[in-house]
Design a protein around this nucleic acid. Structure first.
Lengths: 223, 223
DNA sequence: GTTACTCTTGAGCGAGCCCTAAGAATCTCA
DNA sequence: TGAGATTCTTAGGGCTCGCTCAAGAGTAAC
């Protein structure tokens, strides 16, 4: 299978140079001159790797917030550590500063794709349970064919549930993993979001079938 | 859960500096001065991330050839692209050249661990005895195939018993460990919960086989 | 600046669980 | 064997936990 790469780079010369080289290596490459356009292409899905330019820091963050798991290798002209740190924190998987050697770029692309392939043992870009269909690439959810509108947090929570299906998950763990709170006082946040998910996904939210309560321990997703 | 990192670095100063910093960030760190030793530690398993020095190129290759999937972040003094390429090709997941900023190291460590965590569906921890099966991940208990409903406390108590099987456990110890009571007056709480467990798990609750009474001392789980 | 939307928090309420008490049963030792 | 100590069983009151609702803060979109 040919792997598809989205290259976002505003400088035409570089865009063509890098793009051609990647194509020579046998990758499918689409290019885009700017971040906004790139974001739309990326969220439309279908790419195995993104190469956004530094200006795309916010693109990177937005993609992650929407739960998109596509690997991102960030390119930039600047060589400031703080930028690298920022990029990685915002969800980039790797970071390369210009000027860079083409060889190194290719090696990193290869490493990223190899790593991504490991995770895609189960090519579950889509996960289904009951009459619910969750598309992780486009971050869309359907219930019996009809689209269901989830907020970002709801989608992240649902994703985490799906990833850990069958496990009993404590509120604490969910807060740490989904909300990234290190330590939080007692709060009803998780309950409320679970209630919303049930409202949108369960046939009978009062008698949930998918997200069940484990009294005294937390919640468990069965799907 | 604390993430464990293996740091292979022959220069003592750097080894201590980096090690301490990582520990400060909350990671569990083991250090090793040389590649051979490091290889043995790594293949023994249990680490979430490896930080080998460049000299460990062969270590890296060997680990991969043996099918070990632990993430590897390679550190090196040399800044030659060809080395980076080699490192990545040999299976390193990331590559950092000295001198490097500690902040960047930390960010890359974090990114690698986050990425690694995605694929980790915690292994099914199941303990069986007789016709009873206890699944710690889903907090489910089966008796001869039929599900048994335990309350949270009952499950915690059973878990503690299993973890300390063969040991004679006093009521006091159980209260402290399972109930997290610091000091309690005389109470029958433990007895009652043990009785409930026996009711649900034993073939003949009057003649318990798994949770036996040690008269005058406490209880002992045999499974 | 306004509007719409999401996220968080706290209070009220109901359900389910846990602890306690007390009598019955069992065990130990003289 | 019998007395005393220890353990078992049962049931209900009390209390923790989980759900729901609503309001306010925060944020993005226009």
């Amino acid at each position: 299978m040919e792997e598809k790469i989205l290259l976002v780079e505003d400088e035409p010369g570089l865009r063509i140079t890098i793009g051609d080289r990647l194509r020579n290596e046998g990758y499918g490459v689409e290019t885009s001159p700017d971040g906004q356009d790139g974001y739309e292409q990326a969220s439309a899905g279908g790419f195995d790797l993104m190469l956004p330019r530094k200006s795309g820091l916010d693109v990177c963050r937005d993609l992650r917030q929407n739960g998109l798991a596509v690997p991102i290798l960030m390119l930039t002209a600047r060589d400031q550590t703080v930028d690298k740190v920022l990029g990685l924190k915002l969800g980039a998987d790797d970071y390369l500063t210009k000027p860079f050697e083409m060889l190194e770029l290719l090696a990193r692309v290869e490493a990223l794709l190899r790593r991504a392939a490991v995770g895609t043992r189960s090519p579950t870009a889509i996960h289904s349970f009951g009459n619910i269909r969750v598309d992780f690439r486009s971050t869309e959810v359907f219930r019996g064919g009809d689209p269901v509108t989830l907020s970002a947090k709801e989608f992240q929570l649902l994703s985490y549930f799906i990833k850990h299906r069958g496990e009993t998950l404590s509120r604490e763990q969910l807060l740490q993993e989904v909300w990234e709170y290190s330590s939080t006082p007692y709060t009803r946040t998780v309950d409320v979001h679970v209630a919303w998910l049930r409202q949108k996904l369960e046939d009978d939210p009062r008698q949930p079938r998918w997200i069940v309560t484990v009294h005294g321990l937390g919640y468990k997703f069965t799907g």
